[in-house]
């Protein structure tokens, strides 16, 4: 499972793998001792340092600008002031960005999963010749820096009237991400129970029927995990949406926030509010998706 979970470096949520109680914990808890508490205290301090930026974003997003000028960024706000958040939200038309990001991420996730399933069906079940090479070549889509593709993609999409459209970005990202999905699904389907496929063959099922009625339902949990990964990766993706979606009406959340760099420097609470607006959806997805992802890693562990 190591490579499956680790190949793409971004999103693997914390809740996926709980530390299994190991054998030596069967008895009573180990002795805590002074050193135990000291180590815990040290870790808690480190964890608080990790959380600190989130904390200052929340505190300052709701702080009246006068408070900030008087007491600086550390103080707790004297009253909850939503103006900075509301100003940012309306100023960049954040609802529109959220909608764009949802459309792009959702479509990429579904499309990439479908592409991955088709390719993995040929590689894992069909065992087509040269499959190792096909996989290796596909993985190039995964390692290649997007800078080496971006200008031609920019030119091609302009010629095809896909530049500055959500559809263009969706197609590109779906293909790039399906490389990882193909890799992961191929190894899952490679271990697909032979008896099931044999039974389907005896019943006269065609390849497409096998895919639709047998392979698809049985791989649905893995597909759910893939779709979740793809969704979050796309949501966080920055470079291609930055280049391919220049107009404000098509921007995604990530790009809209990235465009803020260097702006608003005279208004300290505005940037905190903008950060918070970017943090909120990420946390929502984290809470929604963690169960799917937990199921997925359990699957991977059996493998």
């Amino acid at each position: 499972m190591t490579i499956d979970t680790a190949v793409r470096e971004e999103v693997i949520p914390a809740q996926t793998v709980r530390p299994a109680p190991s054998g030596r914990r069967r008895n009573a808890r180990a002795h805590r001792g002074v050193s135990g508490w000291a180590v815990l205290a040290l870790l808690v301090v480190a964890a608080l340092l990790m959380l600190f930026p989130f904390w200052v974003a929340i505190v300052n997003a709701f702080k009246p600008p006068a408070d900030y000028i008087a007491d600086g960024p550390i103080s707790i706000p004297t009253q909850l002031d939503f103006t900075a958040l509301v100003d940012f939200w309306n100023g960049v038309n954040f609802n529109q960005k959220l909608l764009n990001s949802l459309i792009v991420s959702g479509s990429v996730a579904i499309l990439a999963a479908a592409l991955s399933l088709l390719s993995a069906f040929a590689i894992g079940i069909g065992r087509i010749r040269g499959r190792v090479w096909v996989l290796a070549v596909f993985m190039v889509a995964f390692t290649i820096p997007q800078e080496a593709l971006v200008y031609p993609l920019f030119v091609l999409s302009r010629d095809l009237y896909l530049y500055d459209t959500l559809a263009g970005v969706i197609i590109i990202l779906a293909v790039l991400q399906s490389a990882f999905g193909t890799y992961m699904l191929s190894s899952v389907l490679g271990a697909f129970p032979l008896e099931v496929l044999e039974a389907a063959r005896l019943d006269g099922a065609t390849r497409f029927q096998t895919l639709r009625l047998i392979v698809f339902p049985l791989t649905r949990p893995t597909l759910a995990v893939l779709i979740t990964f793809f969704f979050i990766w796309t949501w966080n993706d920055f470079f291609l949406p930055l280049v391919m979606l220049p107009s404000a009406g098509n921007q995604t959340v990530s790009v809209a926030l990235g465009a803020l760099s260097g702006q608003y420097t005279s208004d300290p609470t505005a940037l905190a509010a903008a950060s918070l607006a970017g943090i909120l959806p990420a946390i929502v997805f984290f809470l929604i998706f963690q169960r799917t992802l937990m199921r997925g890693v359990n699957l991977g562990a059996i493998k």
């Binding site: 990790m50 979050i232 966080n236 926030l257 903008a274 943090i279």
Partner: peptide, 19 residues
């Protein structure tokens, strides 16, 4: 504790950058 260490990882990099 593991979840707290993980939390920054869920942010879009652009958001982390602004912050």
């Amino acid at each position: 504790l593991r979840a707290t260490f993980y939390l920054p990882q869920i942010l879009p990099i652009a958001v982390a950058g602004v912050l």
